[in-house]
Amino acid sequence: MNVFRLTGDIAHLLAIILLLMKIWKTRSCAGVSGKSQMMFALVFTTRYLDLITNFISLYNTTMKMIFIASSYGTLYLMFLKFRATYDSNHDTFRMEFLVVPVAGLSFLVNHDFSPLEILWTFSIYLESVAILPQLFMISKTGEAETITSHYLFALGSYRALYILNWVYRFYFEGFFDLIAVVAGCVQTVLYCDFFYLYITKVWKGKKLTLPA
């Protein structure tokens, strides 16, 4: 554990809490992509199957359980409790365009051709692109609520902080996981445009809107 990974995990946790708070407080999931949230639930489910087979630490187990539970909690709020507020007309990204290629790639490029390892690889690849329906939704509507933009900033920061963690671990622990690093870099790059808008607009007190 190093400071980058810890702050990355905290940013990730903060993002999830922000999203749940937004939905709960406004009693609405307007502007949130149900498809991105479904894919995040799939990401956590396929990655954390090792909860059953492998104990790493109390911290690790607790965080994994929080991530899995909160992702299904978010789905519950979006698709059951506040279903009427779900903006499905703008959530039109085709999930199969991500899930199918990612599934294929996880069979082809992995550390070990075993069921758990393939599922772990699938989750890493899927996570890297799972935000695309959300970003697509914002580009369609041309704006995002400020709380949603804070959520996205925290979520994007998490993987950026993980990159620093991987640099640290490479130099100080000799640890290097090519699959995680490449996918993590792709994931972070996808946020760059959003980061720019967030810093130039939201940090100056304006709402996040896209240039016409």
Partner: peptide, 10 residues
């Protein structure tokens, strides 16, 4: 790195 590392990250 060996295959199927112990995935200790989240």
């Amino acid at each position: 790195a060996e295959a199927a590392e112990n995935h200790d990250e989240l």
